[in-house]
Design a binder for these strands. Structure first.
Lengths: 107, 107
DNA sequence: AAGATACTTAAGCGTATGCTTCACCAACCG
DNA sequence: CGGTTGGTGAAGCATACGCTTAAGTATCTT
């Protein structure tokens, strides 16, 4: 998942797919690399669940699948929230001690 | 950034750091690898802005920096929103057409 | 049917990544 | 003081990654 988003070219492909479905060669056009390379990137994105695609005739049309994006976003925000809550508690604890100055709480 | 989060060991370190600051060897303990390897991972996380650390005496204490996490989260949610807005518009468009014509559509 | 188009697959290659070992320094501890 | 603890840095190595070329298949187009 994060692995898939780690590559700038792949992120650019995701970016493009945000604006709507695209064929493989459409995805390839702005990227300075072979169609072959693009297909390989695509299969990484697809394996990560970020993209789904179907072939009609000889053209494969790709579209974003936001569920994976949602999962990644969730992972991050969960951790961020965890840390920030901890941070807030610490702040509160310090403020408390600053005022009353008594029993020591253990972490 | 995503590169840094791409490695499972690094994610585990981030996970640990969510629960509070830790020294390098504390971070290393649950991971089955050398201290050396852990330090290398740490420097990746630090270069990505995910972690900050300071050395006191001979122990380096590491803490999470949520700003980078926030940025990653923002990137994802921005793109997801972009796509989902598009998706909704498409749905509206289809619903609109649904009223006006009724020919056999392909599944 | 001939040719172009849109991929697809496999092989190969250079570089980056993740890891280990080894040598080393700087604090703390008795 | 010497020894242990906590971390650092460089070198080396195996594997993974990103890419290319080349050869092939299936689908339009004319």
């Amino acid at each position: 998942m994060f692995q898939a988003l780690a590559d700038p070219n792949r992120r650019q492909m995701v970016q493009r797919l945000c604006e709507g479905p695209a064929s493989v060669s459409e995805l390839a056009r702005p990227l300075e690399m072979t169609l072959s390379a693009v297909v390989q990137h695509l299969s990484v994105l697809e394996a990560a669940g970020l993209v789904r695609s179907q072939k009609i005739g000889r053209v494969r049309t790709c579209r974003l699948d936001t569920q994976a994006l949602r999962a990644a976003e969730g992972w991050i925000s969960e951790r961020r929230a965890l840390w920030e809550r901890r941070f807030d508690r610490l702040g509160a604890l310090l403020a408390e001690q600053d005022g009353t100055l008594e029993t020591g709480e253990k972490a």
